[in-house]
Amino acid sequence: MARIVYCRGDFRDEAQAQVSLFDRGLLFGDAVYEVTAVIGGRMIDNDLHLARLQRSLAELSIPLPMPVDRIEHVQQQLIARNDLTEGTVYLQVSRGETDRDFLYPEGLAPALIGFTQARKLVGTKAQREGVAVDLADDPRWTRRDIKTVMLLGQVLAKTRARERGFADVWLVEDGKVTEGASSTAYIITADGRIVTRGDSQATLPGCTSRALLRLCAEHGLTVERRAFTPAEAQGAAEAFMTSASSLVLPVVRIGGAVVGNGSPGPLTRELQGHYLKAAEERDARKDRQAKFSSMAGYHQEPRST
């Protein structure tokens, strides 16, 4: 079956979807995006993703293309129409379309597109065995806190890492690790402290990371929000990274150095379990809420928080 996508205000076969030649996302990278994980047919941490989408748009003075609850409805329809049980749902909002000019006219209508990608997220070989990450200079612009579609730096860094035999790459600026090319970077010290950078314009505030940090607080785990050097990372007891598409992913080698004993560490395993358990519990709560709404005789539209 052909994939159904959302484009130009409608759901259509992907072969029939078209973006204007004059779309500013195409011409200037003047657009933002979000990717939400789908497990068991349900979106994970989507409230955080929709909140970050709103923030990114506001930082670029791009208006919302529609109310947030309608955007979530688009996501749910994409999942249902493509019978997606596990994978991701992608959203992209550009400033709109107009003749090419660095300066844009007022009143442009933002353009929303969306699609799903079926892929295995839970129980992958990488999650079981861990991955090796390369180290590379950070080539990106300074406003990394905005999730724009300007990803050429990440594309080049990831491609170079793959050519060198690594699964991914951590980026380095001013002697400190900023983040992964599409993930948040973490290390765990010998005494069990979980270390990751604080939020700033140098890094993207990860949604999976934010959900995981909440779980760390709930379980009494110590977190330090600070930058760390590549050498500190290579000498750490454990390392991992988080993202919507990889969840909590162990890192067992950084550059030429093996992390710990070269296998996913016990605290990383514990965090993987906490994250998946929390996702399952959120799904169970949503099911109970949906059942209650049905029994009450009305339909309650999904909303972000």
Results as ranks from 00 to 15, higher is better:
Met1Tyr: 05
Ala2Glu: 15
Ala2Tyr: 10
Arg3Tyr: 05
Gly9Leu: 11
Asp13Trp: 08
Ala17Asp: 08
Val19Ala: 02
Leu21Lys: 00
Asp23Phe: 08
Asp23Thr: 11
Arg24Lys: 02
Gly25Arg: 02
Leu27Arg: 13
Asp30Phe: 12
Glu34Asp: 15
Asn46Met: 13
Leu48Pro: 03
Ala51Gln: 14
Gln54Asn: 13
Arg55Thr: 00
Leu64Ser: 07
Pro65His: 04
Met66Trp: 10
Pro67Asp: 10
Arg70Leu: 10
Asn82Lys: 06
Val89Cys: 07
Val89Phe: 00
Arg95Tyr: 02
Arg95Gly: 05
Glu97Ala: 13
Thr98Asn: 12
Pro105Thr: 02
Gly107Met: 02
Leu108Lys: 03
Ile113Thr: 15
Ile113Leu: 09
Gly114Lys: 01
Thr116Met: 07
Thr116Asp: 10
Ala118Ser: 14
Lys120Leu: 07
Lys125Arg: 11
Gln127Arg: 11
Asp134Trp: 04
Ala136Leu: 00
Ala136Asn: 06
Pro139Asp: 15
Arg143Lys: 09
Lys147Ile: 09
Met150Tyr: 00
Leu151Met: 14
Leu152Asn: 04
Leu152Trp: 05
Lys158Tyr: 08
Lys158Ser: 09
Ala161Trp: 15
Arg164Trp: 09
Asp174Leu: 08
Ser182Gly: 13
Ser183Thr: 02
Thr189Glu: 13
Ala190Tyr: 03
Asp191Ser: 01
Arg193Phe: 01
Thr196Trp: 01
Asp199Pro: 02
Asp199Val: 12
Gln201Met: 11
Cys207Pro: 01
Cys207Asn: 07
Cys207Glu: 13
Thr208Leu: 06
Thr208Pro: 01
Ala211Gly: 13
Leu213His: 10
Leu215Ile: 01
Leu215Gln: 05
Cys216Asp: 12
Glu218Trp: 00
His219Cys: 09
Glu224Ile: 11
Arg225Leu: 12
Arg225Phe: 06
Arg226Leu: 12
Thr229Asn: 13
Glu232Lys: 11
Ala233Tyr: 12
Ala236Met: 14
Met241Gly: 11
Ser243Glu: 09
Leu247Ile: 06
Val248Pro: 06
Val252Lys: 14
Gly255Lys: 07
Ala257Trp: 05
Gly260Met: 12
Ser263Val: 14
Arg269Asp: 09
Leu271Met: 00
Gly273Pro: 12
Lys277His: 09
Arg285His: 09
Arg285Thr: 12
Ser293Leu: 07
Met295Leu: 03
Met295Asp: 13
Gly297Asn: 07
His299Ser: 06
Gln300Asp: 10
Ser304Met: 07
